[in-house]
Amino acid sequence: MIAFKFLALGAVGPFTGFAWPTPTRSGPGAWVEVPPESVPNRGIHACLTDDLSFWLDDELWIAELAGPVQRSSDQLISSRGRLLQRTAWARDVAIELGKACTFKARDAAARVLQGNGRATDADRLLSCSNLVELKGVAREISGPCKTDSLANLAGYVADAATFANVGEVATVTYIVAEFARASAGATAAASERAWQGRWIAERLKLPQPDARAIV
């Protein structure tokens, strides 16, 4: 089945250091295999669209998994896999993602503030047009007191804007998912992660994996 795989520069596994065989003119990269009995403790890891933002790295590849494919803890695991094609994921796209996540959290925080009688704070957040301005305003609203849950939401926005502004995009996606968790619980955090993944898929026009192949 088709799946996605983030790798470090040079098609290298970011945790294992394994150098993946890349596609050539004659076709996809060579198959990489582990003994089927070693799955799931060892295996070929990839992910579906919804899980993309957990694994951000330098390169995003479209991969093919073969054999029984299991889904577990935000990833897919199989005993065989190969790289099909490198996507257009790059630093500038990552920075766009960080900005989109941050302003989405900004809008959500503004709605909560508005609904709790703090229209002025909400309007101040909504008036921000760039990350530096948003970071400053959100930090002012959050203030030093972390016991005010509404102010704390603005704190998440300030944190996201801070990291988005320096291009730490994986951290931004994490903060915004935690913002969703703090606002509306674990389901909201999962929905946020799925939204982030869909953003990547739509931006890069990724193919839709066929999840029916998952056992």
Binding site: F6, P14, F15, P40, N41, R42, F54, W55, L56, D57, S72, S73, D74, Q75, A170, T171, T173, Y174
Partner: peptide
Amino acid sequence: QALSHDERTRFEQHLALCGGCK
């Protein structure tokens, strides 16, 4: 490779967003 599958996933998810630990 002594971590359980879930432990390893959490470990790697931390690495994915922490340059220092990576």
